[in-house]
Amino acid sequence: MRAAAAIETFLEMMSAERGAAQNTLDSYRRDLEDAAAFSAATGLQLTLAQPATIRAYLDDIAERGFAATSQARRLSALRQFFRFLYTENIRADDPTSTLDTPKKDRSLPKILSEADVEKLLSRAEEETQDAKASNMVHFHSLRLHALLEILYATGLRVSELVGLPVTVARSDNRFLMVRGKGSKDRMVPLSGKARDAMAKYLALRDTLPNLSGSPWLFPAISESGFLARQVFARELKGLAARTGLKTSAISPHVLRHAFASHLLQNGADLRAVQQLLGHSDISTTQIYTHVMEERLHRLVTEHHPLAD
């Protein structure tokens, strides 16, 4: 089987059997087509590649400046692709089975302090109370405040947040039912402040004729029909600047990290945080273990009778 046909068949399987999201499928396609082009340059279809070819490809992307995390992601795509070829009897072996994953540097997530998050949320709330603001400016301030309160209360991925259906706000909104990666549903609790911000935003949203009929909580004129992640990120950085915070250190993803870290700092269980974040593997959540280590160290030094 030629590489192009094998890649298409693999992607169809990932979509139909594993429910892979479109972004995931696009990422696999880019990675596999790049590997196929490299293999073809050596005179082999990717479907016939040997371990030496895969190693040479990994060396090539390293020389092109790809980070260890990107190299590991590409090797993961190739592993799944060749495992698929093997299980479907398209080839008799898996050339990636003996390859080691490139070692990734363990980087700690950027987070905001609780005080900085409070400043950000307070500023967002203040801007919703500007009596001189036009109706559209008032709408944007209510929307941004609702987005931030929901994000910090739930730790949603930004794609999950902007793509929330409006039905979640019209039901029992003490909890949100969220559809995450791999079309997996999870339930996350919503704070009183987040519910209040969402209700105020929704009250104005429902009066706007061009928005009230949208199925999305945060509708917009876009291909998807809802607010673009980039627009939210831009508005967040603008708010950070007006709050006096360093804009380069703030993004929707940083607020997701803040949600997780602040929960752990205040005694939450790592497994509970894993469930709230929608991580399928606890190892993904373990980037936050440094927070737990600090908390345990403080617990011992403050409460152990023999501590200095």
Rank of each mutant, 00 (worst) to 15 (best):
P219W: 06
G192P: 00
S283Q: 14
A197R: 13
R64E: 12
L204V: 13
A67K: 08
K110D: 11
V300L: 10
R170Q: 15
R295M: 06
L148Q: 09
S15Q: 08
Y57A: 10
D172F: 11
L176Y: 07
T289H: 15
I150G: 04
D105E: 15
M292C: 05
A21E: 13
M13N: 10
R74G: 07
L142F: 12
R242P: 01
S15L: 10
R179M: 10
V166S: 06
D308T: 14
T53L: 05
L108Q: 12
M13H: 15
S212V: 01
R143G: 06
T98N: 09
R174G: 14
N210T: 03
H262K: 10
A133G: 05
K200R: 12
K110F: 14
Q22R: 13
S107G: 09
H304G: 14
Y152N: 04
P165Y: 07
R123K: 15
L85K: 02
T9P: 00
A36G: 11
D105T: 11
T154D: 03
K184Q: 06
T47H: 01
D34P: 07
L161G: 02
H257V: 01
L245C: 02
L99D: 10
Q50M: 08
V273T: 01
E235W: 01
I111K: 04
L142E: 13
K184F: 01
S113H: 15
L46E: 04
Y86Q: 01
R91W: 12
N266W: 13
R234M: 10
S97D: 10
R73P: 00
S261H: 09
S171T: 14
V162I: 12
L48D: 13
S248N: 12
A115E: 12
H279P: 01
L217V: 06
I61G: 00
S191I: 06
F38P: 02
A77V: 02
A240D: 05
R29P: 08
L245F: 09
R64Y: 07
T284C: 01
D60C: 03
N210Y: 08
N210E: 10
A220W: 00
L156H: 14
D196W: 02
L204H: 04
T96Q: 05
P305V: 00
E127K: 13
S97N: 12
T285V: 07
R64I: 06
L32G: 04
P252R: 04
S261T: 14
S141W: 05
N23T: 04
L208P: 03
Q129W: 00
A41G: 08
I111R: 06
L204M: 08
R174I: 13
A40K: 11
R186G: 08
L147T: 14
V117F: 02
S39G: 05
F38I: 01
